[in-house]
Design a protein around this nucleic acid. Structure first.
Lengths: 340, 340
DNA sequence: CGGTTTTGCACAAACGTTTGCACACCTCAG
DNA sequence: CTGAGGTGTGCAAACGTTTGTGCAAAACCG
């Protein structure tokens, strides 16, 4: 059971002090080239790797950033992680990944673990359940740099990165109106998510601008489960005058809703058109994808969130100099030829 | 700038020694209940959290397991992470996530970082590019517990968790044959992946058992890019006698191949049937999903891999007692009614 | 009451680094 | 020749824990 090679071992074999070895490895100018080379040679030979733990203890940082999000399997978040990981790896920072599974207590527990682990910073997208922010405030009280992304609770003094969904909803609605749709429904997400409110505002603004009436019967909320989405879509379809287009909270909601339409014998994007958010890659494989989808640039969100966090950690940005980045969404139009 | 609360600070305020505080916090029996309670009280009041770094340095472990995989965004791997994270969180272990993006040099670099970080163990699914295992062997030489999952290179003395794809391919092929298909093509993955070989073997075995001829013209390999899949599918369709069914490496390959079929004016699952691997959730949303798909139980794979790793780390399993878990796949049949 | 055991705590070393400081030697200028 | 400055290295403290050992006081036993 060969032991792990440490600086002390190299020092012993070379008859120098550990401090000399440490400096030699860092190419300190006060170490003679003779010693330096000997140290490097032996280090290579013994396959020495510095202990990040020890170094971090000494330096007072951990080289770890905690990343907390609801569900990895959601494509959106996978892409965010992608962006984060890219930058983190470049900066030799480890990404510790945690899922809240949209549960408040789990999120709370995770933040405690992160504080105990003395992570250098945290990237957080809150759980659906999260209504209060006390646990987040505690993190801030411990001076741990925090960047919130995508799902951002109100009234919290942290850096933020998100995509302007109000504008996305606005443009999507406008696009539908311009294509001649007159009864545009909104199949929105739950109240608790700011994202729902943003979509709502953009939707309303666009309707008003286009001179279309706002009808409450055309506005529904789903908790994003297939069941509830189906229920709400059913309500929309069984109303007196059916919508001729639906703007959905995201692609999954759109797909669930489309299933319901088919069960009514409707031809999707012909009898009733869909536009949604997320622009999932799976849309490429669908025979009848939403006509358009609002791209939220998740990779960019992750990348920018990580960039801000690393800048705060490295002192490039003062912790108090709160950053708020709002990315522009992009309406990706898939087919132009739907209305026959 | 309030400093981080340490054990020393508590000791100072209580006029006891740091060691007493440490023991009190661990509920050591030799500490009086009086002191113990005082310590706990003050620790709570000051919101003391132990420094994991310091503890780990002292204990000689880090409480971190490294997880290296090709692409997070692939649904399969997201689910694996899910399984890992579940168990890791329960065991108070941090999961450090790294993506190789299927590149060999990146994978190599990541393993070095992990060794330097003194992770307690590593979960690895190798990159497509990876042909040699020297870098993996180095990890083992450093006595770092390693569990390989899903993509497992040959000839390596590490624990392994995978899904029996040979059997999956066998059952899928058999299922097609029993449905009356006589010209069953195999649109396989690249040579380098063992998974491809396993599928190949299962496919052949089933054909032979069913008394069907093995035709090389019906066996193609794709590197899993859309372009190459399209190319190979084209070859299959432009051959003298077209296949009446295709077994594809995974759902994505199936979807890409289906697009090609449509461009030939073929009706998917009627003129030509598809069966694939992965059983992606997106199948639920397709109008013409593969008739059946082999479920590989990614969550289970992650869970079991993590279980083995944690057992090795905790000494429950001797590192030399090599575990090899082979999960049984499950053929999920979507529609029974395709052939008209 | 003398001796043994138990109880409660402090001291110090250790984990593997980094880094301020001291010190010895060497060089060179005045 | 003397002092200043430069060069190469070692010592020791520090980061925040844990834990073996030692030691005094208290409690117990016959």
């Amino acid at each position: 059971m060969k032991d792990v090679v440490t600086i002390k071992e190299i020092a012993r074999q070379l008859n120098v002090s550990p401090s000399t070895v440490s400096r030699a490895l860092q190419n300190h100018p006060r170490i003679s080239s003779h010693t330096r080379e000997a140290v490097h040679a032996l280090a290579n030979q013994l396959k020495y790797l510095p202990s990040t733990t020890a170094r971090n203890l000494q330096r007072g940082r951990t080289g770890v950033i905690g990343m907390v999000l609801p569900e990895i399997r959601e494509n959106f978040f996978s892409e965010v992680i992608n962006g984060v990981e890219e930058l983190a790896f470049e900066h030799q920072v480890t990404v510790a990944l945690y899922q809240s599974h949209d549960r408040f207590d789990r999120e709370k527990q995770i933040l405690t673990v992160l504080a105990s682990n003395r992570v250098d910073g945290v990237l957080l997208s809150v759980a659906k359940e999260t209504q209060q922010i006390h646990h987040i405030q505690e993190l801030l009280d411990r001076q741990i740099p925090l960047v919130l992304f995508d799902r951002i609770p109100p009234h919290i003094a942290a850096h933020q990165v998100e995509c302007n969904m109000e504008k996305g909803a606005y443009e999507a609605t406008k696009w539908l109106a311009r294509r001649g749709h007159r009864r545009i429904a909104l199949l929105n997400g739950p109240h608790a998510l700011i994202a729902s409110e943003e979509r709502y505002r953009g939707y309303i603004t666009a309707l008003v601008e286009e001179g279309l009436p706002v009808e409450n019967a055309l506005i529904k909320r789903s908790d994003l489960t297939t069941q509830e989405t189906a229920l709400k879509m059913n309500q929309l379809l069984s109303s007196a005058t059916r919508p001729d287009a639906v703007l959905t909270f995201n692609d999954y909601v759109a797909l669930d809703a489309m299933q319901v339409c088919r069960s009514y014998g409707l031809v999707v994007n012909q009898d009733i058109s869909f536009v949604s958010f997320a622009n999932l890659p799976l849309n490429m494989y669908l025979e009848h994808p939403p006509l358009a989808s609002v791209e939220q640039h998740p990779y960019q969100i992750g990348f920018m969130a990580a960039e801000i966090l690393l800048n705060v950690i490295n002192g490039v940005i003062a912790p108090t100099d709160l950053q708020k980045v709002i990315l522009e969404p992009e309406l990706i139009v898939r087919q132009q030829d739907a209305i026959s």
